[in-house]
Amino acid sequence: MPAKSKFVWIFGCLIAFFLIIVPFVLSRFWVGTITEILILTLAGISLNFLLGYAGCLSFGHGAFFATAAYTTAILITRTGLNQYFVILLVAPLMAAFLGAIIGILISRLYAFYYAIMTVAFTMILWSIIRRLRDLTGGDSGILGVHFAGFLQEMNNIYFFTLAVVVLCAIILWIIGNSPFGWALRAIRENPVRSSFVSINVVWHRYLALVVSSFFCGMAGSLHVVYTFGAFPELAFWTKSADIVTICILGGINSFLGPAIGSAVLILLETFITSVTLYWPLILGIIICAVVLLMPQGITGLIRNVFNKGRGEFRA
């Protein structure tokens, strides 16, 4: 077995073991922090499906996150429907529906035209959420959203989140390695040549956005389970920037890059904000350092060490 896959295997087992014992050995605070990392990881993996595979940079994934979060919160507080498995299907579907609408308008666009359009949509959604006070609670959001049944206790929330995130990650991994996923890679590499091998470029990019928004919505729903609320900041563009940041920190050419990015981002945030208030300053410096010194992210750096600096990187 080559050193690399041996490393991945051992490291993976350790992580899995760690994730399972977390609630039994760590304090409630850390269980919460890791839950947060898991949720952001799912958002990151869903964005990376679009960014790393299809090469579409969305700066508006917060919109899908927020749409599902609000759908979840509204369904629970306004309707008698309080069954998490129904809600956790309906809310991501709402996010996917939004993705399907936005996709009609942007799937033909490339590079920064695509990025700027996604920013525009998330800003529109943010304004709408703040305006529709009766439905969304305006600036203060919706608070006190409690799921019925076992999703009240932190450890249960943790295990539930872990299970959903792992399941979604597996599904995205399968899609990413299917012929559909490979068509997306071909489009990322060379959209012109892709159309000459009869790949329907626009349609593939469109479906990639819909799939990605669904899973980002799933993360948004889980966020409500964890925070018991939905807030307009989720749709603010900085939330979207966070999701992009973890992909870049972790490495967009690696499937689990966003998981590492998410862990690094949230842990740094937790530590640094306890020391200084200038967290955004430190984050800015870290992002600069990553982009300049390890453009393939943390996973890229690890991989380069194993490839003895041959510099190969691939999704």
Binding site: I174, I175, N177, S178, P179, F180, G181, W182, A183, R185, A186, E189, N190, V192, R193, S194, F196, V197, S198, I199, N200, H204, L207, R314
Partner: peptide
């Protein structure tokens, strides 16, 4: 005009899968 970051095998693979109208298959490992 090829797919520079895919291997030669993968370059041909995406074309073969597309020809067989499999590029919307999301389940099987390509």
């Amino acid at each position: 005009n090829i797919f520079p970051q895919l291997t030669a095998y993968e370059n041909v693979m995406v074309a073969v899968l597309s020809q067989k109208k499999r590029s919307f298959n999301v389940i099987h490992p390509a």
